[in-house]
Design a binder for these strands. Structure first.
Length: 444
RNA sequence: GCGCCCUUCGUCUAUCGGUUAGGACCCCAGAUUUUCAAUCUGGUAAGAGGGGUUCGACUCCCCUAGGGCGUGCCA
């Protein structure tokens, strides 16, 4: 059986760390299995969905490298949902209800105050034809609920193992709104059947839904897919991800200068038994992914880890890959430069600072000009990759300075910073003229 | 309120009744025959609490505490 999965975001906002996990996990699983990945835009709510967000979602996925094999808009598939609706009606699994939202709210509050679970009482099921006609005559339009069988629905979850949901303890889900709009549940199942989705992979916030949806699959005469419910992410302090980090969008991370592979590596490996580090590629991620490596409790998303992983991606990036981006930043100073500085980058844009050290003007940090003058006097006429070692040895000999006292003043004078890449290659890249002037205390 | 799920080093996790409780990140130390960083090596550090079951429990059961999710004419 060929694996086929789907990611079904609503275009009511941009993708963020909270919901991108579903996309990434689905994608790496599908690719690892040689399967298909379907992008299904859940735009049945025409009020809240926008084309801008839809485009934004595609932009985000594409930037992350999460390509799709099929793409659908649910708004273009209403005939299929009507078909499913008729089928459920014909089986008496879909029944019209006339309560208003206020009435339902009130009823829930009463149940809660009595210590009862707020479950729909199915009053509408007992309505006679005359009563229904009377309500319709009043101008009331029905919303439609799916009649649950009220049994223990069981499945073997790829992450959580044997699971069961008692649908007797939940309200019959509303499938169609008073205004005729389809809610998420029915289109989701109808599409999963129609598209031949083999695995439904989503957050654990959907486990209860799974009970109801499996009943709908059965009612529509379709086999149920395999389910996998991964744990949700929480913030670094264990707080729910909704508010602060949920709003940390892929777009923001991108604008902050994060690498797509860092984001996908972090999100795919967080909460698994794989080391939380940069993958070589998305294919590498896909190859190492397995559901049985996933933990069952919420994992903490810490931006500090993302920075570290981002640095890891940069440390391994070859010049060919970096070159166009270096060029864009006006920081393409050749392969030797890139190889010398990449180890010190956290964000790609950090490279511009180092490019200035090599190709631009730097104001030296001078504490002891006499020492620097002495060092400058020992600087050879020609500088190459071997110069640094020989030169510093000579300076040590002449001044008696060693260790930090020897190197730090030279680093600060030559780069204007107290930290940075290895000085050997850097000195060669800076060149004799700039080096000499900086040692003399000049901005050069 | 009710229901479901979860709880091992600071963090992510391994362990599926008998282990010196392992790994990765962070942190600390050493090395790179002298610098910050990077890199390499080493080290510190854990079974929420309380009851059972058992010759023996991190592992099975119960209670408590803590956390997540659900309980929508949201997805």
């Amino acid at each position: 059986m060929t694996v086929k999965v789907r990611f079904a975001p609503s275009p009511t906002g941009r993708l963020h760390v909270g919901n991108i996990r579903a996309a990434i996990v689905n994608w790496v699983f599908a690719r690892g299995q040689g399967g298909k990945f379907v992008l299904r835009i859940d735009d049945t709510d025409l009020e809240r969905s926008t084309k801008e967000y839809e485009q934004g979602i595609e932009t985000d996925l594409t930037w992350l490298g999460l390509t799709w094999d099929e793409r659908h808009n649910q708004s273009a598939r209403f005939p299929l949902y009507h078909q499913a609706m008729e089928r459920l009606k014909a089986q008496n699994r879909l029944y019209p209800c006339y309560e208003t939202q206020d009435e339902l709210d009130r009823r829930r509050k009463v149940q809660l105050s009595r210590g009862q679970p707020p479950i729909y009482d199915r009053a509408a099921l007992k309505l006679t034809d005359e009563e229904r006609a009377a309500l319709e005559a009043e101008g009331r339009r029905p919303h439609w609920r799916f009649r649950l069988e009220g049994k223990r629905v069981k499945w073997n979850d790829l992450v959580r193992g044997p699971c069961e949901v008692d649908t007797a303890s939940m309200s019959d889900p509303v499938l169609i709104r008073e205004d005729g709009a389809f809610l998420y549940t029915l289109p989701s199942v109808a599409d999963d059947i129609d598209m031949g989705i083999t695995h439904i992979i989503r957050g654990e916030d959907h486990v209860t839904n799974t009970g109801a949806q499996m009943e709908i699959f059965e009612a529509l005469g379709a086999p149920t897919p395999v389910f996998a419910h991964f744990s949700l992410l929480v913030g670094a302090e264990g707080e729910a991800l909704g508010k602060r980090l949920g709003s940390l969008s892929i777009l923001q991370l991108r604008e902050q200068g994060h690498e797509p592979l860092a984001i996908t590596s972090h999100i795919a490996r967080l909460g698994t038994s794989d080391p939380l580090e940069a993958a070589d590629s998305l294919a590498d991620l896909a190859g190492s992914f397995a559901f049985d490596k996933m933990g069952r409790h919420p994992a903490r998303f810490d931006p500090v880890d993302l920075s570290r992983i981002n640095a890891g991606v940069l440390h391994a990036m070859d010049y060919e890959t970096a070159q166009p981006r270096l060029s864009n930043l006006g920081a393409d100073l050749g392969e030797a430069f890139w190889l010398a500085v990449r180890q010190n980058l956290v964000l790609f844009s950090d490279v511009t600072i180092l490019a200035r050290v090599v190709g631009g003007a730097v104001t030296p940090l001078v504490e002891d000009q006499a020492f620097l003058d002495q060092a400058a006097g020992l600087l050879p006429e020609t500088i190459d990759g071997e110069t640094w070692g020989r030169w510093t040895a000579a300076v040590k000999e002449a001044t008696g300075a060693k260790g930090r006292a020897l190197f730090m003043p030279l680093r600060k004078a030559l780069t204007g910073m107290d930290h940075g890449p290895e000085m050997g290659p850097l000195l060669a890249l800076i060149g004799r003229e700039k080096a000499a002037r900086r040692l003399a205390g000049e901005t050069a």
